[in-house]
């Protein structure tokens, strides 16, 4: 990799204040900080119920320097559609509307509104910061929770029994102009994707893996390391899809074993060696699928 100066890479402006209400080590405020650095002040954030409903702080104290709409759980994409339409009517085309939802509000209850907006190719950026469960209500499973994980509604006697929903493929299947994955552990890649998304009109979707110390059960200082591991072991490949057909990896990975990542998190503590093999096989199979998508891209 060629040498890059951090100050050239990361915009200096800060639109997220310290003193926000996230847990120590939370990936979610870091994700917001990076995304807003790139989007700038002319951004409106649309926020359904999620951890960020709390992190933002109670009005008039706000950890954000941009306008913020709290919406009903299932409605981020619908409210964002309405705000976009209102801005367009007023001739304001340079303000970015950004829906900012967790995995529950995206993969589960908000998927209908998101699908509708994507089908209409609404002109907004939809960011899902994914901490792989309903963390704000106390760690209940979502359809983004990985197979085998403990949550309070998937106890160790009955851990998560389904595979994580492939939201990137779902969004790509809507043929939206831009869909991508990113992780707070790789800020350069994340910023580049936000920059690209900002330059495109229509529905743009960004899926950010956001490690969660209390929900995944690891200690606060390991968040960045967890994200790196998830990318390097191909559990969470960094990639982008243009117009639903041009798939591309944005980061080379070594294809590390998943085991150190799984074993570092208390939510997987009950898993057996057989389970580990099963997870590795699943990751390998999905990687091969993605490689085929990339190889067959025009």
């Amino acid at each position: 990799m060629s040498q890059v100066m951090i100050k050239e890479l990361v915009p200096r402006r800060e639109l997220v204040d310290p003193g926000h209400l996230a847990c120590p080590g939370c990936g979610a405020p870091l994700a917001m900080r990076l995304v807003l650095k790139e989007l700038g002040e002319k951004t409106i954030v649309v926020l359904p119920a999620c951890c960020w409903s709390i992190i933002a702080g109670p009005y008039p104290q706000s950890s954000l320097h941009v306008p913020l709409y709290h919406t009903a759980f299932e409605t981020a994409a619908a409210v964002a559609s309405g705000i976009r339409a209102a801005l367009d009517v007023r001739g304001d085309t340079d303000t970015t509307v950004m829906a900012w939802a967790g995995d529950g509000g995206t993969f589960d209850i908000g998927l209908q509104a998101l699908s509708g907006a994507a089908e209409r190719n609404e002109d907004f950026l939809y960011v899902c910061y994914d901490n792989e469960a309903y963390m704000n209500t106390g760690i209940q499973r979502s359809s983004a929770t990985p197979w085998g994980a403990w949550t309070t509604t998937t106890p160790r006697s009955q851990p998560q029994g389904t595979k994580k929903k492939d939201i990137l493929s779902i969004m790509a299947a809507h043929r939206i102009p831009y869909a991508a994955t990113a992780c707070v552990s790789y800020p350069a890649d994340l910023l580049e994707k936000v920059r690209k998304a900002k330059s495109i009109r229509g529905t743009r979707f960004l899926h950010i893996l956001s490690p969660c110390p209390p929900g995944w059960k690891f200690s606060d200082e390991q968040s960045i390391e967890m994200g790196r591991k998830a990318v390097q072991n191909r559990i969470f490949p960094l990639m982008e899809v243009e117009d639903g057909i041009r798939w591309r990896f944005t980061m080379e990975t070594d294809g590390d074993r998943v085991e150190p990542y799984i074993k570092a998190q208390g939510r997987f503590r009950h898993l057996t060696d057989e389970d580990m093999v099963r997870i590795q096989d699943e990751v390998n199979a999905r990687w091969e699928y993605l490689e085929r998508m990339v190889a067959s891209s025009p």
Partner: peptide
């Protein structure tokens, strides 16, 4: 479905019902 302040009911159901041969679905 999870929501504060009722989520413990679902969590208790998740812990108890499968053991009794019942069904818990989130």
């Amino acid at each position: 479905y999870p929501i504060t302040p009722s989520s413990e009911i679902a969590e208790s159901a998740a812990a108890l019902l499968p053991q009794l041969g019942g069904t818990f679905v989130q």
